[in-house]
Design a protein around this nucleic acid. Structure first.
Length: 274
RNA sequence: CCUAUUUCAAUGCG
């Protein structure tokens, strides 16, 4: 079945609906069972390629062939509409799956929470977050990252911090992405010292900071007007063996320009061209 | 773009 799914996914990434479904169905002629996971995989491939409508079309084909959509199916579709910024459709699907006695799992809740955060409804996200707990679904690191990021972007860094600590108390191990989210949130609100402290903390735990980490730190220092430190942090990235990404240069040049240190900005810009 | 993935979700830049 593996081969047919892979072939179907290839067609999907090229946006070919008919061909992909045909490839998937072909497995039955070869004695394989065409199951829900196979359809889910194909739907996901269309979502990843940005074809939300075609993903939905496959979902309908699935229903017509008598297969019940499962939790994964709904998760993939909710993610599709989240990416398309159709928050109403995400919520609708969430309700729909429960009408069909399909149980939401931690991915379902995480996706919903992330969708709400990204559409500016952080309050709603917090409600859902509390909801999932009372329904016996434990948030994981993905869930926490979404809500921490959402709160940070909404300027509610203190709440974000609170949840970060709650996460640790729940026995979940913070990874690089959570740290990055919180550091970014702190940087936006000029709380660079707290951001720096977290940076050291993540390093001491053996986590490898990446270009996202450093971009957030440099950007935060720049916004706070602490340009020399921004320059030093940029060098720090080099010391950590972090690839000097364009976004990192961007953050530094931005900081220098804001501080009217244009000569230095040009100089850095010159390094970028090589 | 970057990243990631072979059934699903999280951080960056433009």
């Amino acid at each position: 079945p593996r081969i047919f799914i892979e072939l179907a996914r290839s067609y999907a990434s090229a946006g070919l609906l008919e061909k992909s479904v045909e490839a998937l169905k072909r497995m039955e002629a070869h004695g394989c069972v065409l199951s829900a996971p196979a359809y889910n995989s194909l739907i996901d491939a269309f979502v990843k390629a940005g074809y939300h409508q075609k993903a939905l079309a496959v979902y309908r084909v699935m229903g017509q062939s008598g297969l019940r959509p499962d939790t994964y199916t709904f998760n993939v579709l909710m993610n599709a509409f989240k990416k398309a910024k159709k928050i109403d459709s995400v919520c609708k699907l969430f309700g729909e799956m429960q009408n069909q006695n399909c149980t939401p799992n931690v991915v379902t809740f995480s996706t919903l929470i992330d969708a709400l955060c990204k559409s500016g409804e952080v309050g709603e996200a917090v409600t859902v977050f509390a909801d999932m707990k009372t329904r016996g679904c434990r948030p994981n690191v993905f869930t926490y990252t979404s809500i921490i990021d959402g709160l940070g972007k909404a300027g509610q860094v203190d709440k974000a911090f609170f949840l970060f600590e709650e996460m640790g108390a729940e026995g979940l191990v913070a990874n690089r992405v959570v740290y990055n989210s919180l550091i970014h949130g702190l940087g936006r609100t000029c709380r660079v010292d707290a951001a720096g402290k977290l940076f050291r903390e993540m390093v001491s735990k053996g986590l490898q900071p990446d270009y996202v980490t450093f971009t957030s730190l440099v950007y935060g220092l720049g916004v706070a007007g602490r340009v020399s430190e921004a320059r030093r942090m940029f060098e720090e990235a080099r010391n950590f063996g972090c690839a000097l990404d364009t976004s990192l240069y961007n953050a530094l040049i931005d900081s220098l320009c804001k501080a009217k240190r244009l000569d230095e900005a040009w100089e850095v810009f010159g390094n970028l061209e090589e």
